[in-house]
Amino acid sequence: MLSQLKTIFLILFLSIASFSLFAQKYPVYNFESFSPVLEKQNDTTYIVNFWATWCSPCVKEMPAFNELHEKYKDRKIKIILVSLDFGKNLQAKIERFAQAHKIKPTIIILDDPNSNSWIDKVSKDWSGAIPATLIYNKNNRVFHEQSFTFEELESTLHQIINK
């Protein structure tokens, strides 16, 4: 009886362990599956930031997104951090980064290397350099190819909300 129980626990443990090992914590999109994120028509204002773990000006502005996320968590504001990282061990790389920088907003991965086909669909004003941030709701839309301080980010958000 005891050994049966042990076996059951072992199986349970292994399946949970393997699940957490292979589950994709950060969902991976191509541009087609990602594009609805840019076109939501509801009461929420979306802040969509394009970044990568190795991009120093991107890393520099992460505290601004964290702070905004905390300050506006009771408002209809949603921050989505779109990682353009590529290479091996992507999930682990991003997990390490998220832990080290205590990232609070949602992180997703956009893996679509034919970027010429989709950069203009995010914004005609985008050269392709990162970081880049789109802030929009159903009424307004603004795009910036720059690294934000918290104050800059918040005032840009207010322009969109209060327009």
């Binding site: 991009c55 000006p57 970027s115 010429n116 050269s127 392709g128 350099a129």
Partner: peptide, 10 residues
């Protein structure tokens, strides 16, 4: 004329 994702010029 084409575009691509790249690093900003520092």
């Amino acid at each position: 004329f084409t575009k691509a994702i790249g690093c900003t010029i520092k």
